[in-house]
Simulated scan of single mutants.
Amino acid sequence: MSYSRRRFLAGAGVLALAGLPACAVLARSENIGGVRYGMVHDETRCIGCTACVDACREANLVAEGVSRLSIIRSEPVGDFPDVKYRFFRHSCQHCDRAPCVAVCPTGASFRDAATGIIDVNPDLCVGCQYCIVACPWRVRFIHPVSRTADKCDFCRKTRLKEGRQPACVEVCPTRALTFGNLDDPQSEVSKLIAGQTTYRYKLALGTLPKLYRVPFRYGEVKQ
């Protein structure tokens, strides 16, 4: 999960242009009004089965050749036969201060006021790819059919619209994913964050990602 210095500086440069702090470590939560959905990925429970990837593809009709979600397996940790792997969820972080929203020239990339979810309106997207360049996590892509930007939307237009959990959460066999309202202290996701040691990837960029992680217990966890 390492990124080259050139890619890091490119992402930080875009954040600076968007008026976002590139180095400040900010508070865990920022109230933006309405429900503020977030997710926890428990790396101690994840077994890398990729059922979440398949469920996402099926629920959201993700085109072949692209993916809204991937699970990245680390190099082996430990010596044979006691070898372990860390599984890292690679998907949209749904940042409270999203650089992809800040740089979009048409308003196609937006934060949904009702849920806090970062989404894309394909009717407004012109395929300029500014949002793709701005994203420090490199999780956006151009849809091969619509030729517009696409990414994880926490199943906002599918499962959430039906009053259900995101497809990846529903299908996970080890309950490694928890989803809910971060601004509700009684929600399952808020209680998990309050009661567990968690981290957020690239937090120092100041984007306030809403994807939290329970860290892998073995080896070094790079943030």
Rank of each mutant, 00 (worst) to 15 (best):
S2P: 04
S2C: 00
Y3C: 00
R6L: 08
R7S: 13
R7Q: 15
F8K: 12
L9V: 07
G13P: 02
V14S: 06
L15K: 15
L17C: 09
L17M: 14
G19Q: 12
G19E: 05
G19K: 09
L20K: 03
L20C: 04
P21K: 05
V25E: 10
A27H: 11
A27T: 12
R28C: 00
I32V: 15
G33I: 14
G33L: 07
G34P: 10
V35T: 14
V35D: 06
V40D: 02
D42W: 11
E43N: 09
T44I: 00
C46A: 06
C49V: 12
C52H: 04
D54Q: 12
R57V: 11
R57I: 07
R57K: 15
A59Y: 04
N60A: 11
L61D: 14
E64T: 06
S67T: 13
S67W: 06
S70E: 15
E75L: 14
E75Y: 14
V77C: 09
V77K: 05
G78D: 06
F80P: 14
D82Y: 06
V83H: 05
Y85V: 05
R86S: 11
S91K: 03
Q93C: 01
C95T: 09
C95A: 09
D96G: 09
P99F: 00
V101E: 13
V103W: 04
S109I: 15
R111Y: 07
R111W: 02
A113Y: 06
I117D: 01
I118F: 06
D123F: 13
D123I: 04
L124D: 07
L124C: 01
V126D: 14
V126Y: 02
V126R: 08
Y130L: 13
C131S: 03
I132T: 11
W137A: 03
F141T: 12
I142D: 11
P144H: 04
P144N: 02
T148W: 06
A149Y: 00
D150F: 04
C152E: 01
C152Y: 01
D153M: 04
D153S: 03
F154I: 02
C155V: 10
C155Q: 12
K157R: 11
T158M: 12
L160R: 15
K161F: 11
K161C: 07
K161R: 13
K161I: 00
E162A: 15
E162G: 05
E162C: 07
G163E: 04
G163A: 09
A167W: 05
A167E: 08
A167F: 04
V169F: 04
E170A: 15
V171S: 05
P173W: 01
P173A: 10
P173K: 08
P173C: 01
T178R: 07
T178V: 15
F179E: 12
L182F: 09
D183E: 13
D184W: 03
S187Q: 02
E188S: 05
S190D: 08
S190L: 04
S190H: 05
S190P: 02
L192I: 02
L192T: 03
I193K: 03
I193M: 07
I193Q: 02
Q196S: 15
T197K: 14
T198N: 07
Y199F: 15
L203A: 14
A204N: 10
T207H: 04
L208C: 01
P209I: 07
L211T: 12
L211V: 15
P215F: 11
P215L: 08
R217V: 09
Y218D: 12
V221S: 11
Q223D: 13
